[in-house]
Design a protein around this nucleic acid. Structure first.
Lengths: 100, 100
DNA sequence: TTTATATATCGAGAATTATAGATATATTTA
DNA sequence: TAAATATATCTATAATTCTCGATATATAAA
């Protein structure tokens, strides 16, 4: 972790909805309906479900999630036409270690 | 800690200079000259020293530090005409706990 | 191979933040 | 009390971010 990446993470955390997504992803089964094709949350939650819950436009949520992945807060996995997002606990740990 | 305050903290951490200040304040004696009137860093570092090091205008640095104090990242103590700033480790801990 | 669905990217206007100079306030010193 | 110093606040412009609709791409289904 360095200052530049940490600040990029800070930018992601500077918006209530983005921060909220990170919180929801702590417990996907509690905050999202079960996936129909993928019978688990091992790779996180698909973009559509996150979009529905936030009520933002598809393009906005896609940009948010892409940026959160770029700075390492999220891990993205594609299964067929769906992208699944989960927290990247390793980076989050590095970030909090850097801060403290 | 709640989502609103956490996001305010995120805003402070979304700027490289503000984040840097927080890092410097981990070890004041390493990054700042000794105070002339106050013979310790127990209450942190005075605004002037922080301003000099960042090379931002006085008004900008004052605004930064005020906001960082408002969201709980910093603790401000006045001694005479100087304000001293130090990290608020308690809030920082609450923030990282909230995130993880 | 056409159509449908999921996600990504582009371009633009609205909203917010960055930053500084001017000015105000608080405190100390002469 | 007047001048000097440290910090805070006000106001305004520049820069960045927000957010969306339009469009592109990728994959699956018909």
């Amino acid at each position: 972790m360095n200052l530049k990446i940490a600040t990029e993470i800070g930018k992601c955390l500077s918006n209530q909805i983005r921060f909220q997504i990170l919180e929801w992803l702590k417990e996907p089964e509690k905050h999202f309906p079960p996936h129909e094709t993928l019978k688990h949350f091992n790779d996180g939650v698909c973009v559509t479900y996150i979009q529905e819950k936030t009520k933002l436009s598809q393009s906005t949520i896609s940009t948010y999630l892409t940026n959160m992945e770029k700075c390492g807060l999220l891990i993205s996995t594609r299964h067929g036409k769906w992208s699944y997002l989960k927290r990247n606990e390793e980076t989050i740990k590095q970030f909090t270690d850097f801060l403290t």
